[in-house]
Design a protein around this nucleic acid. Structure first.
Lengths: 256, 256
DNA sequence: CACAGTCTGTACGCAAACGTACCGAAGCCT
DNA sequence: AGGCTTCGGTACGTTTGCGTACAGACTGTG
């Protein structure tokens, strides 16, 4: 059984646990989906967003719970997980500035169908479900963009199905680190082997071995919960094709 | 490399390859999603549907191709697959009467993001994309139902991510057979070990071993491409939790 | 009826990953 | 500074599943 450490399991739907900076978004939100909106459709969106700083392992949505807000990551990375009956949690989606959480909100639902939490600390633009739904109804371009994004989310989940069936632990580690480096917009971020192993559904020792191999290749440096990407090209080459496939899917979702 | 046999790889977007019975749907379509529509929303849908009989391994949608139609399975089972660079095809979604293909159509897209084909021969109700889109625009209950169904599709894909990471070949075989038995509405259907192995992303021999184990349990009988479910309870108990989780997700998508 | 093709049962050695454990190093708290 | 906790490196035997192969059984076709 590979459950998340108890620190992460503290349910924190209580909004008061989130520290808030309160600063409004200005010219751009920092989230690529929202920033892909044409100016007329983007108008006023800064008033609908609250910038929230999440620390690692804070929950944002809880399976079966009512969604109160939709989070558009800026430099935070969120994990969407499926929890199995034996307590194992496996990541089924990773969400950064290229997407939002939860997709359900764009599918006419206000119940979260999965649990999500902050994997790499950072900021999100938070919108209430009411405001989100209002925009979905009142702005066809907004709704279209969100649904195209859900399409990429579905595509990614499907890609991970194949990935977990066919690709090695090393490849999947490299994929995860490549994706995350893109999302945080920095070559360095916080993540323990233990957490990555839970997300990938593998042994902690397996991640340590993969991390060691990637270090030897010069792709990364790993020290006590902090990853530094030294050579992104090498890292991407060590990753399976799923990295590029998902990146591509989200990229086209923004323009189509 | 575990590619699909060449017989399945024959692209058959040419509509003439499908045999058509031409009979209109009457009181119920046979597809549970459409049949979940309230009478006023269902009205006239039989004129939008053409009943098409698909034989095994006929393609219905091709990745990157324009979707001309949306298929609502009646007793056919379709597989949605991801094809990896090395040619391996892995099933990322199975679609029967509880859903439809392609989900993209309900996400403001007319490009198929995955390839789909008929896995177990049978009938589908086929609607042109134009009619589908017209109904999406003109009927809020229709659109809502379709999007709730996409939500279940996403949930299933996510479940399979975890499933492929954590569950054994035996469990996954039992899950697949349980799901398929539900969808075809008959305890007997056509499926070779070889195809199931490709769908699950495992060895053909692995499926043979699992099938043998399930036979010994009295759950199924397997002979030359024909599975017979002898004891559904035993089969479901041999399956992982993902079977019930996905069934539940689609069931609630019809009523919520 | 014979033959070719398909499907399944089974076997073998091998590689990947598992579960588990232990230790030392690094950070944190008092 | 000392002690506790967290984190990562490493090791061991074990299990699962892989890749491959081959033979027997069945089926459809000529």
């Amino acid at each position: 059984m590979r459950a998340m450490p108890s620190s992460a399991v503290v349910p924190s739907n209580d909004p008061s646990v989130f520290s808030r900076t309160g600063e409004p978004a200005l010219f751009s939100s920092g989230n690529r989906v929202l920033d892909a909106l044409a100016p007329p459709d983007f108008a006023g969106i800064e008033h609908d967003l609250e910038i929230v700083s999440l620390s690692a392992h804070q929950f944002t949505h809880s399976i079966g719970g009512t969604m109160h807000h939709v989070d558009f990551p800026i430099d935070a990375v969120l994990s969407v997980v499926a929890t199995l009956l034996n307590g194992d949690s496996v990541e089924v989606g990773t969400v950064g500035c290229e997407s939002f959480v939860e997709a359900d909100a764009a599918l006419d639902s206000t119940i979260a169908s999965r649990t999500s939490f902050c994997q790499v600390k950072g900021r999100v633009g938070r919108m209430t479900v009411e405001r989100f739904e209002h925009r979905m109804r009142s702005s066809a371009p907004f709704a279209r963009l969100m649904r195209h994004n859900v399409r990429a989310t579905l595509f990614s989940a499907q890609q991970f199905v194949a990935c977990n069936a066919k690709h090695s632990v090393l490849q999947r580690c490299a994929r995860w680190l490549s994706m995350t480096a893109d999302r945080v917009g920095s070559p360095q971020f916080t993540l323990t082997h233990d957490f990555l192993s839970i997300m990938l559904g593998v042994r902690r020792a397996g991640v340590s071995e993969a991390a060691d191999a990637l270090s030897r290749l010069g792709a990364i440096d790993y020290g006590r919960g902090v990853v530094t990407v030294l050579d992104k090209d090498v890292l991407e080459r060590a990753a399976c094709e799923c990295y590029r496939a998902c990146r591509q899917a989200f990229a086209t979702s923004l323009i189509a």
